[in-house]
């Protein structure tokens, strides 16, 4: 009677560990890809900045305007690549959290998925609050 229970328990623990390892691996892939994309975009922006010449400390840019980024990139303006690189940099850890939420939901770990959702809510709050003018 004991043996089947132990085997089942071991098998269940093994499955949980394997699921956990799978989540870790997929998140690691997202982080690596996100980092490469971010650094790639920033590097292209830096190269274009070098070609354009001048000191980056002396140039002024308008604030972030996502609607302008595609046009800037098509025109090979450095700021388009730099802004997109910055957005990709900031988005990479958030994609990691979103992937963890999906992974934990798939594994039936609702409390852990809930924590991930809580993190994303804090980030959403940051976006909303930051757009209000500073006192």
């Amino acid at each position: 009677m004991t043996a089947p229970v132990t085997a089942s328990g071991a098998s269940s623990a093994g499955t949980a560990a394997s699921r956990s390892a799978r989540v870790d691996r997929s998140i690691a892939r997202i982080l690596r890809a996100g980092t490469l994309v971010s650094i790639g975009l920033l590097a292209v922006g830096v190269a274009l900045l070098a070609i354009a010449g001048g000191s980056p400390l002396e140039r002024t840019l308008p604030g972030l305007d996502p609607a302008r980024i595609p046009a800037d990139i098509l025109a090979l303006r450095p700021e388009g690549f730099l802004w997109l690189g910055l957005l990709a940099t900031l988005a990479t850890p958030l994609l990691r959290v979103a992937a963890a939420v999906v992974g934990f939901l798939g594994a039936g770990e609702r409390r852990m998925a809930g924590l991930g959702v809580a993190v994303l809510i804090v980030i959403a709050l940051a976006v909303v609050v930051a757009q209000r003018p500073a006192a």
Binding site: I39, V46, L49, L61, L86, L90, P93, R96, A130, A134
Partner: peptide
Amino acid sequence: GVTASASAIVYLLRDGINPLVAGPTAV
């Protein structure tokens, strides 16, 4: 990453990050 993103979003949306300086430094 997540911690710094939460505050970096505030800096970014309040024009506190200059991409012309952040780009070469980050690379």
